[in-house]
Amino acid sequence: MTARHRVRVTRRLPEAVEARLAAQYDVVVNQPDIALSATELRDAMREFDAILPTITDRIDADLLATSGRRAALIANYGAGVDHIDLAAARAAGIAVSNTPGALTEATAELAILLMLMAARRAGEGERELRAGEWTGWRPTHLVGQSLDGCTLGLIGFGRIAQGTAARARGLGMRILYFSRSPAATEIEAALGASRVDTAEALMAEADVVSLHIPGGRATHHFVDAVLLAKAKPGAILVNTARGSVVDEAALVAALAEGRIAAAGLDVYENEPTVSAALLASPRTVLLPHLGSATKGAREAMGMQAVDNLDAFFAGRALPDRVA
């Protein structure tokens, strides 16, 4: 009997995904479902043919240079790969794949949820009600704003941003976007989207700004105090991308001075730690990284990761290779 390839899975996955892995591989799943330590990851690099990690695993150059390394593939569960040193992986001859597309619809939906909650002050209302502080309906109580007729500015215009734009159009929003490259004319036409030349121009015009850029050094603190100062007074900021793209201290200051009216965040600079200042700000809606958290999306992500494992060990091209 031919020995099966060994695969280390760093977090619990949907049941159907784990069952498929178990049927095809000699797989070890992280049953406690707590992020592996650097030592455990290093051991996995030595003992397994492939690693199936998530965003909670920091795979840096030092880890990739593990002596006696056996792992030849990192099949990431998730679209973002800023937790993996891709240059070091290439240098070490380790293939890296991700799972783009599977989480598009779920994350776009969550971006809209955050916009609506922030605009209509839903988070404030729920906190007040649960604290027993609601005294009843009155005309001036927690008055928010409608998104109908507002301008949505998207920073980044990939799959998730485009999915967000499509949903925002249904709410009657006008769509602007900023990205390094223009989208195809037919995509702009279908979404009624117009490209602006700079992030500063977008900030000045948008009532709601939604972030859709990858993490990493190139985008670290992309939204900083300087950019926030360009925002249209009373704008709303939404982030379902990566926490590192926002300077949280600058955002807290912008919220305090009213330059930014509200923020809806699903990701944070130092996850799972959330800054006390953000937690204390009354005009924030804060979610625990739920962008892809639908049954369908999480299962599809896992199946896509296994598709990459299958292709690699069959000697085929990786469907979703990033390094």
Rank of each mutant, 00 (worst) to 15 (best):
L41N: 02
D43E: 14
M45Y: 00
R46H: 04
R46Q: 15
I51W: 03
T56F: 12
D60I: 06
T66G: 05
T66N: 06
S67Q: 04
R70V: 09
A71G: 09
A72F: 01
A79V: 15
V81Q: 05
D82C: 10
D82S: 13
D82W: 09
I84S: 10
D85W: 06
L86P: 01
A87K: 15
A87S: 13
A88S: 11
A89I: 05
R90H: 11
A91Y: 05
S97N: 09
S97L: 12
T99A: 14
P100C: 11
T104N: 08
A106M: 06
T107K: 10
A108K: 11
E109T: 05
A111S: 15
L114W: 00
M115P: 00
R121F: 04
R121G: 01
E124G: 13
E128M: 14
A131S: 13
G132T: 04
W134L: 08
W134Y: 13
W137V: 06
W137H: 12
P139C: 05
Q145F: 02
S146K: 10
D148S: 15
C150G: 08
L152Q: 00
L152G: 00
L152K: 00
R159M: 03
I160L: 10
R169K: 14
R169G: 12
L171E: 06
L171H: 12
L171V: 11
M173D: 00
R174M: 02
I175F: 09
R180C: 07
R180A: 14
P182N: 05
I187A: 14
